[in-house]
Write a protein that binds this DNA or RNA. Structure first.
Lengths: 106, 106
DNA sequence: TCGATAGTTCCAAAAAGGTCGAACTGTGAG
DNA sequence: CTCACAGTTCGACCTTTTTGGAACTATCGA
């Protein structure tokens, strides 16, 4: 491998994201929880997110972050020694109007 | 097995359906297409639905119908020699307001 | 009554998704 | 400069989904 901590991760443009991928990413309870958390609490570090899933290995959690990121739902960026996770609300809303609100309020 | 054609299939009450299950059912392109079709065309027979997925074996199609049915999204009822498939729009709307519209208009 | 039709279930195989330990690497603290 | 920390990737393994053929059965038409 080249860089393990992989400072800068790839994020898709929302126009390139398909609806099934978004729905799939949201269809997992763990990931759905995470999205809800980000929606109510704003940006969080990975460690803060992970705190709600106690006992889950870092690698597993990282996998779920990746799934959400690749579906265009979150942004995961380096912030000093940590990483900041943010919901891409406006962008998702623009691409899939009303979808996120409908999901979040259910 | 007891009855193969299984005349009357079980349908969950929508209150018993969880959001992740609905999102999961909708996260497959084939199933999403089917839901869209039902939304625009109303009730259809299984054969009519299947016509939009040419070449797909009946058993595979039946599996997708089952997935949608168990997620509370469709109703699948005997109608003479055939079966009628219907979107449970009102019920889904009541349980998950705005969700279906958001998905369908994306 | 007999046959063809519509559609489901069963079963096994293939594909995809999820879990977790180990290895790894920027970064800031000391 | 070195070390511990935060977090990602890799690879192996297991579980869940998806696929498709075969067996099956109400129903209707002839």
């Amino acid at each position: 491998m080249s860089d393990a901590t992989t400072r800068r991760l790839p994020h898709p443009e929302l126009e390139d994201v398909e609806l099934p991928a978004v729905l799939f990413a949201l269809s997992d309870p763990i990931r759905l929880d995470l999205v809800r958390q980000l929606a109510t609490q704003g940006s969080l570090t990975v460690a803060q997110c992970q705190a709600t899933e106690p006992g889950m290995p870092k690698s597993t959690f990282s996998y779920h972050l990746k799934t959400l990121r690749e579906a265009g739902l979150i942004r995961n960026e380096p912030a000093g020694r940590q990483r900041t996770v943010t919901l891409r609300k406006e962008e998702v809303d623009k691409r899939f109007p009303a979808l996120l609100d409908a999901v979040l309020s259910s």
